[in-house]
Design a protein around this nucleic acid. Structure first.
Length: 491
RNA sequence: GGUCUCGUAGUAUAACGGUUAGUACAACGGGUUUUCAUCCCGUCAACGCGGGUUCGACUCCCGCCGAGAUCACCA
């Protein structure tokens, strides 16, 4: 049986966004499941749209997601080069083969003339097909066409319109009529091939067995099939991937709809595990009710025949949910130390000089509240710098506003005195002491604990009070409580 | 306009001829004797429409409607 070979073939025109990264994930999973090869090929034939640095961005994105390619830039491979601009002679060879067999011609029609054809067809309300305007060269001998090579003219395919039938592994049995067959450009006047021609040559030379790409290429299939025939190349398997839809409307998600780049989510504190998990399950499922998959589990469970054939809407809320799941999973299964290594760059600036051990303690009591790693920046500030005293947060609190100022002062005094005397500043003992204080206060838990919690953090929420106090330490806690008490007295 | 594709709750999906149409996110309510969150329990909510075929249709067939893709010397 032939080894499975898949590829991801992006153009270096910018970042990879959420809408198109799945075209990398699915081929990767298919290749890995079969123990095959996953190729990264850079389709850089459009010089006008080329963006400096885009290739590196693509590589970074794939690496971050853990989609390591077996052949391609950086790693090399026996079917290189993997940049289309470095494969020009390959395309020319195959194009010459077509000219020799009378299936391609050099087109010296001026572009103004071509514009006229198009406009005329539009006026006549007939579909614009270049084959209806074939130049004389199309009928000339291969020798005469070959002689025209190198003069800066494009090479066009000479199609033979007919019906095509094929199987798409996702969409099923497909049929089209002859009206879509046309004399497509194979090689542009700048000597570089079009996508239509280049990908067929490359996929054949690289031994690609599954062409997995977005459904937008479906309508070009007849022309591709004609090319396989004329080049006497076997058809690979065709796998059309449905679009990812924008949050609003029913259009495919694109940069124009504000599609964020994958690396932007990385910088916002989304874990690659969560991103991969979510995207893989958006438009595919294994028929079970399993939700959380590791990369290995995805590879194991993946199958082409369970890829959805309708578009799926991207839902940022759900990816946050996945991310929360993954943060907790890493903490629970691999430990806080492992999770901590993933949080680099996500702490508030005030934490910069704090010891690792302290940050790990903070992480261990806050992690189940995180949706993204960047939440650390806003949620842990008070562990590192003393919060500004803001009495309105106390007097205006929904649990505390019924208490008088003198009551508040008394509660603070009582708390400070007791905490000052505690010998054993452990989480367990603090829990006991706080419970005793609560009882002594005669207040409801929500009232008394909120007061202490806010006095110490001035944050809208925080981890359980006894844990927060334990991690902050006696010194900080007492200093903050005293400061608040003084402020209340002076108020 | 031509060609092609798609259509189960707000979203992602399961079931593929017979189920009270299942699950997850979201929303709402409750519990976990402190906030927020986690975790747990519960509630709300769907087969685009119309014809067939069949004892029976979300499931098969046809039509309609709706949505999308594509018609470049872009990929």
């Amino acid at each position: 049986m032939k080894k499975t070979v898949t590829r991801f073939a992006p153009s270096p025109t910018g970042y990879i966004h959420i809408g198109n990264v799945r075209s990398a994930i699915y081929p990767y999973l298919v290749a890995k499941k079969d123990g095959g090869t996953f190729i990264l090929r850079i389709e850089d034939t459009d010089q006008a749209r080329y963006v400096e640095g885009a290739t590196e961005l693509i590589e970074d994105t794939l690496k971050w997601l853990g989609l390591d390619w077996d052949e391609g830039p950086i790693v090399g491979g026996e079917n290189g080069p993997y940049f289309q601009t470095e494969r020009k002679e390959h395309y020319l060879e195959w194009a010459k083969k077509l000219i020799k067999s009378g299936r391609a011609y050099v087109d010296d029609t001026p572009s103004e003339k071509i514009d006229e054809y198009r406009k005329a067809d539009e006026r006549a309300k007939v579909p614009y097909l270049y084959r209806n305007h074939r130049p004389e060269n199309a009928e000339k001998s291969p020798e005469k066409n070959l002689a025209l090579l190198g003069a800066g003219h494009p090479i066009r395919f000479k199609t033979i319109p007919k019906n095509y039938d094929w199987t798409d592994e996702v969409m099923g049995e497909m049929h089209t009529g002859p009206e879509v067959c046309d004399d497509i450009v194979l090689i542009k006047k700048d000597g570089l091939p079009t996508y239509n021609f280049a990908h067929i040559v490359d996929d054949a030379e690289m031994g690609v067995t599954h062409i997995m790409r977005g459904v937008e290429y479906l309508s070009s299939m007849p022309n591709y099939l004609a090319l396989y025939e004329a080049l006497e190349l076997p058809r690979p398997l065709f796998v059309s991937l449905p679009h990812i839809l924008a949050p609003q409307g029913n259009k495919k998600l694109g940069k124009r709809d504000g599609a964020k780049s994958v690396t932007e989510y990385r910088d916002d504190g989304i874990l690659p595990e969560a991103m991969l998990n979510y995207l893989a399950c958006l438009g595919w499922n294994d028929g079970t009710e399993k939700e959380i998959y590791t990369k290995e589990e995805l590879i194991d469970a993946f199958s082409i025949d369970r890829i959805q054939n309708s578009g799926a809407r991207f839902d940022e809320v759900k990816i946050f949910w996945y991310n929360g799941q993954w943060i907790r999973r890493i903490a629970d299964k691999q430990g806080i130390d492992t999770l901590f290594t993933r949080t680099e760059g996500f702490w508030p600036e005030s934490a910069a000089s704090e010891p690792e051990e302290y940050k790990k303690k903070v992480l261990s009591i806050i992690y189940d509240r995180l949706k993204t790693l960047s939440d650390l920046r806003t949620m842990t500030e008070y562990f590192f710098i003393d919060p500004e005293v803001n009495l309105e947060l106390i007097t205006g609190n929904k649990f505390l506003k019924k208490l008088s100022e003198s009551e508040l002062v008394d509660l603070m005094t009582m708390t400070i005195e007791r905490l000052n005397d505690i010998k054993d500043w452990s989480e367990e003992n603090l829990q006991n002491e706080l419970n005793a204080l609560l009882e002594k206060s005669g207040k409801k838990p929500a009232e008394y604990f909120s007061l202490v919690r806010i006095a110490v953090s001035f944050a809208p929420f925080s981890p359980a009070l006894h844990q927060t106090l334990t991690v902050l330490g006696r010194e900080k806690v007492l200093a903050r409580l005293n400061k608040v008490r003084t402020a209340l007295v002076n108020n």
